[in-house]
């Protein structure tokens, strides 16, 4: 083999290695984006499950409260309206978060109202529903944390190299966070030295 042949062979080998490396990087980034996107969807599904669980509790809660506090019709209607708005299937993530936060506010008002009615406070049915609601709220909070963590990873992967190139070539878009309401934000206390 002459010198020219050796040079051509070496250059060809280098090009082949570079091409294989590029393809491998692209495939890896693409697969990672797909995995992270699926994780955001799975996390959203968990939120959805917990939110539906909360929605299912609300009619019973309102009905029980209405038996003892019939004068608080305005509060009950506000809760029912907020629930209807939150349960609308056409909402995007941000709108859904807003609607759910509004629902949380009206529910909080309902529970405050219940404090004025000793018989309602003593009702076992109401107490059970209240407890289940608190449990559902907790699970929603954790589900929201998981969802936001998944979104953060997904968005970061889309903005980092080479994920940004791969995301640009394929159907990947930034996901919106499921923002907590003001009350929820305040409940987290982190104290540093």
């Amino acid at each position: 083999m002459d010198t020219m042949g050796v040079v051509v062979g070496a250059v060809g080998a280098v090009i082949a290695i570079v091409v294989v490396g590029l393809v491998w990087t692209v495939v890896r980034s693409y697969n990672r984006l797909i995995r992270l996107r699926n994780q955001t969807r799975a996390s959203w599904a968990q939120i959805d499950v917990q939110l539906k669980r909360r929605h299912d509790l609300i009619p019973n809660l309102v009905e029980t409260a209405a038996e003892y506090a019939a004068h608080e019709r305005g509060t009950f209607e506000a809760v029912t309206t907020a629930r209807g708005a939150a349960a609308s299937p056409d909402l995007g993530t941000a709108e859904r978060a807003e609607a759910e936060n509004a629902l949380s506010s009206t529910l909080a008002r309902l529970l405050v109202t219940a404090e004025s009615y000793p018989e309602l406070k003593a009702s076992q049915t109401f107490l059970r529903l209240q407890s289940e609601l608190a449990g559902a709220e907790d699970k929603i909070a954790y589900a929201r944390q998981f969802y936001n963590a998944a979104v953060q990873s997904y968005n970061t992967a889309q903005e980092s190299f080479p994920g940004n190139l791969v995301a640009g070539l394929s159907e990947h878009a930034r996901q919106e966070y499921f923002e907590a309401g003001a009350e929820s934000r305040e409940s987290v206390q982190v104290r540093f030295r």
Partner: peptide, 22 residues
């Protein structure tokens, strides 16, 4: 479920304030 959340695996100990028993 937890492993699939990349950021969760890298949480520091003080994150227990937010993630609690998880």
């Amino acid at each position: 479920w937890l492993e699939a959340h990349e950021s969760f695996t890298q949480l520091p100990p003080a994150a227990v304030t937010v993630w609690e028993r998880y």
